[in-house]
Amino acid sequence: MLCGGLAVLAAVSGRAIAQVEDHGYSAADIQAGFKIYSAQCQLCHGPNGDQIAGINLSRQRFKRVVSDDDIKATVSSGIVSAGMPAFRFQPAELNSIVAFIRSGFDTSGTPFKLGDAARGKAVFEGKGGCTACHAPQGEGRFNAPSLSAVGAARQPVEIQRYILEPNKAMLPLNRPVSITLKDGRTLKGRRLNEDSYSVQLRDETLRLHSIAKADIKSYELGKTSNMPSYAGKLSDTELADLLGYLTSLKGS
């Protein structure tokens, strides 16, 4: 297991930012955790981890636990009064379970590392230059989605893929489009919606357009995202910190 060892005290980063550890989660651990979870936990917690009221394991919504060690302790001691039995797992098995939960139940088993959220915020606003496009807390006019609840909406590996390979992270619907109308005008922007007769987009100046397909001369779908790739541009630690920060953004 990859353990960063960069211990950052909770007191420094504050409880408001939930991610206080620096942990890497390997593909093998996540996959092994998935197996254990399917066999031992799914019956009560459900395939998406949301079957027990007030708890959503895949979205990191807990009643009491905060840290990875808290999760391990809960599994080992059980919450017998509430109906969760105590499990006897080896340390490696406990690490796997944590990795699977932290991955947001990502069954593809892509490895990732969650670093320090406070440092991640600094990367987001500083070196990463993310605020050139993304409103830091969902405020302001920006031509990119607000990230203020991205930690609740997306799995860590999805966020990681956005940062490293944005072209592979776009939903097909969200592709940039370039449309030439029969009257000669050209519109470029991000596709927002489409049906059999019309397409809706927002151009670079944030103007909204709804275009009848009957008026379109040519319609090009961009394959590349307007978000630049940060692969090779951030150190492993910076990436982990950024991920620690983004996964902590869960909306208000």
Binding site: E158, K168, A169, P172, L173, E194, D195
Partner: peptide, 15 residues
């Protein structure tokens, strides 16, 4: 490996 739409339509937007 790229994301795909869910099966059902959950919002006003076609996915």
């Amino acid at each position: 490996g790229t994301p795909t739409p869910g099966i059902g339509r959950k919002s006003l937007i076609n996915n």
